[in-house]
């Protein structure tokens, strides 16, 4: 699974720490999600979508082999 979290952050001009505070997770979690090491739960994905005001599919994209 790929994600555009870093791009969405850049568009909204927020740091990892600011995003982490807004969502209620640690900065480390944001970092590992951005690097693709950790796939968040549906609830967290929806929180990201609500924060960035975009559909979830714009942030998290399934690979062909997923």
């Amino acid at each position: 699974m790929q994600n555009t979290l870093k791009i969405q952050r850049a568009i909204k001009n927020v740091t990892q720490a600011e995003l982490a505070d807004a969502i209620g997770v640690s900065r480390q979690s944001i970092n590992t999600i951005e690097k693709g090491k950790f796939v968040p739960s549906t609830m967290l994905a929806l929180k990201f979508a609500r924060f960035f005001e975009v559909p979830v599919e714009k942030i998290f994209i399934l690979d062909e082999d997923d």
Binding site: G24, V25, S26, Q28, S29, T32, F38, S41, L44
Partner: peptide
């Protein structure tokens, strides 16, 4: 608890 407790910490 950690300072910020989330699902990644659980993992």
């Amino acid at each position: 608890k950690e300072k910020v407790e989330d699902e990644y910490m659980q993992l």
